[in-house]
């Protein structure tokens, strides 16, 4: 790998990391900041509603956050609304930043939303959709076999579990 490739890989990596570290949120209600992602973990502080937090990590139903003026700790994910507290700025999650960078690079512009020329999926678009049977045939060509699915699971160390369905909103199981 050439040095140039390495450095561009480093840039891409930093974009990826930046897009994740940039996530912000705010507490919806009074929330205990815990030392670990468990309900019975030590409470570090009590955060009032509307506290701005930086989201650092997720684990199950918990989020590791860094509130302004407090050390980092864990809160229930349901206690946090993502997005900036005081502005309308909404953090882009996931791979959005990578895509936007690629689209900007392609158009030669920067900071401009690029029209991709792809049809949207508004309620009106949906009603007026003309069928594309050739696309369904194409879809067939991407189908996986069970053994391919199994080896993807195996390489990801995904272990099958026997778990009953949840049958109602209370969490009761079959």
């Amino acid at each position: 790998m050439t040095l140039r490739r390495l450095s561009s890989a480093a840039v891409l990596l930093s974009i990826s990391v930046a897009s994740i570290a940039a996530e912000m949120g705010q507490t919806l209600v009074n929330t205990d900041l815990k030392s670990e992602p468990f309900a019975d973990a030590k409470t570090l502080a009590s955060l009032p509603g509307n506290s701005a937090v930086d989201v650092l990590k997720r684990q199950g139903g918990w989020m590791q956050v860094k509130p302004a003026g407090n050390s980092e700790g864990w809160v229930k994910m349901t206690a946090v609304k993502l997005g900036g507290a005081t502005t309308n700025a909404k953090a882009d999650s996931g791979m959005t930043a990578l895509w936007n960078t690629a689209m900007q690079g392609r158009s030669g512009n920067t900071g401009v939303t690029v029209a991709t020329g792809v049809r949207g999926l508004s309620p009106e678009d949906m009603k007026n959709a003309q069928p594309a049977p050739e696309q369904v045939k194409k879809l067939d060509s991407f189908a996986a076999t069970k053994s391919q699915a199994e080896s993807a699971a195996k390489s990801g160390k995904l272990a099958r579990q026997n778990i009953d369905y949840i049958v109602d909103a209370s969490g009761a199981r079959k």
Binding site: V118, R119, M126, A129, P131, A132, Q135, L139
Partner: peptide, 14 residues
């Protein structure tokens, strides 16, 4: 399902 999928992919392709 086949015709429903064709309608969806008519609205936005793969």
């Amino acid at each position: 399902g086949n015709v429903s999928a064709a309608a969806l992919l008519g609205a936005a392709p793969l």
